[in-house]
C-alpha cells in the first residue's frame, strides 16, 4: 500500500512540472513589448523600465525560468503587478473561501446525486428512473451562472429567504456563513449532482444485475443489506471517480459564481487579474488550482485501494 502510494505520488511530478512550465510561458505569450503591456497604456517610460527590471525580462528565457521555478519551489510566487503584495499571501487569503464553496458544492452533488442515482438504478425503466434521466440531462445543460441568476431572482429578490451577496466567514458567524453558502453552493453543485446521479445510476444498474446480488436477494437477505453491502460498495469505485472529477468542474464554475455572489475567493482574484493582465497572480492561481486538482485525484486513487483490496497488492 505504501509503495503504491509513493509510486502514485511520483506520477504527479511530471504533471506539475509541465503545468509550471506552461504557467511560466504565459509571459512569453504576451504580444508586443511585455513590460509596456503589463504596465498599462498610461504608464510612464520609468514605470515600464521598472516592470522590465522587476520581471527580469532582459535575462535569457532559461535564466528567467530558473529563477521563477526556484522561487516557486521555495513557495515564492512573485509579487502582484497591481496590488504590490506577495501572490502567495493573496491566494492564501482567498483559497479558503473557494475551497469551502467547492466542498459545499461537492457535498450537495453527492447528497443529491448518489441517492437519485440509487433510486433510478435500482429499478431501471421505472418512472423514477425516467424522471432522474430528464433532470440529469437538464442539470448538465443549465450553465451555473444562469442557475445562480435564477436562484437569486427566486430566493433573494422574490422570497427574500437567502442573501444574494455578503459573504460571512465561518469564524465570524457559522449560521450566517451557511446562509451565504447555500445559493452559490446550489448553483455550482447542480451540474455535478446531475453528473454524479447519472454515473451512480449506471453503476448501480450494472451491479444490481450481477449474480451475487440476485443470489443474496433469493436467499432472503433484507433489501437494505443487499443495497448497502452488495450494491453500494461494489458501485463505489465509479461513484468516487465521478465525484472526484467534479472538483475540476466545480472549481471552474466557482470562478464565475463567486463573482456573482461577491465572495472574496480565487475566482474574484482571477477575474480582476485577467482584466489587469496581472501575470504573476494568474500564474499563482493556475498552479494553486492544478495542485488542488492533482491532490484530489491522488487521494481518490488511494481510496480505490479501500474499495478494491486487490489493488493494494500491486
Amino acid at each position: 500500500m505504501a509503495g503504491y502510494a509513493v509510486r502514485r505520488l511520483l506520477t504527479a511530478v511530471p504533471l506539475l512540472a509541465l503545468i509550471g512550465f506552461g504557467a511560466f510561458m504565459l509571459t512569453f505569450m504576451i504580444p508586443g513589448d511585455v513590460a509596456a503591456t503589463i504596465a498599462g497604456e498610461s504608464a510612464t517610460p520609468q514605470r515600464i523600465e521598472e516592470v522590465r527590471r522587476q520581471l527580469g525580462l532582459d535575462d535569457s528565457a532559461l535564466t528567467q525560468f530558473g529563477r521563477w521555478a526556484g522561487g516557486v519551489l521555495q513557495g515564492d510566487l512573485g509579487t502582484s503587478m497591481i496590488h504590490r503584495i506577495a501572490v502567495t499571501q493573496m491566494i492564501g487569503e482567498r483559497l479558503g473561501v473557494t475551497v469551502s464553496l467547492v466542498a459545499f458544492g461537492l457535498l450537495i452533488a453527492v447528497l443529491v446525486g448518489v441517492p437519485a442515482g440509487l433510486v433510478a438504478g435500482l429499478r431501471p425503466g421505472r418512472w423514477t428512473d425516467r424522471l432522474v434521466t430528464v433532470l440529469t440531462t437538464l442539470g448538465l445543460a443549465v450553465p451555473a451562472f444562469w442557475l445562480a441568476t435564477i436562484l437569486i431572482i427566486v430566493f433573494a429578490i422574490n422570497l427574500g429567504m437567502l442573501p444574494a451577496t455578503g459573504f460571512v466567514p465561518i469564524t465570524e458567524n457559522p449560521l450566517r456563513w451557511l446562509e451565504s453558502m447555500i445559493l452559490p453552493g446550489l448553483a455550482i453543485g447542480a451540474a455535478s449532482a446531475a453528473d454524479v446521479a447519472r454515473q451512480s445510476r449506471s453503476a448501480v444498474a450494472e451491479t444490481v444485475g450481477r449474480d451475487h446480488v440476485r443470489t443474496s436477494r433469493a436467499m432472503g437477505l433484507r433489501p437494505r443489506s443487499v443495497v448497502g453491502r452488495h450494491v453500494l460498495k461494489n458501485s463505489g469505485i465509479p461513484i468516487v471517480t465521478v465525484a472526484s472529477l467534479q472538483v475540476e468542474r466545480l472549481l471552474g464554475a466557482a470562478v464565475v459564481v463567486e463573482l456573482m455572489f461577491a465572495m472574496p475567493g480565487l475566482g474574484q482574484l482571477t477575474v480582476s487579474a485577467v482584466r489587469a493582465r496581472d501575470i504573476p497572480t494568474i500564474q499563482g492561481v493556475v498552479l494553486t488550482i492544478a495542485v488542488v486538482v492533482i491532490l484530489v485525484n491522488l487521494l481518490v486513487d488511494l481510496s480505490y485501494a479501500w474499495f478494491n483490496p486487490r489493488l493494494r497488492k500491486r
Binding site: 504565459l26 509571459t27 505569450m29 504576451i30 504580444p31 470562478v255 485577467v274 493582465r277 501575470i279 494568474i282
Partner: peptide, 8 residues
C-alpha cells in the same frame, strides 16, 4: 482565462 490574460 490565463491565456486571455496574456493575449488580451
Amino acid at each position: 482565462m490565463a491565456i486571455v490574460a496574456a493575449r488580451g
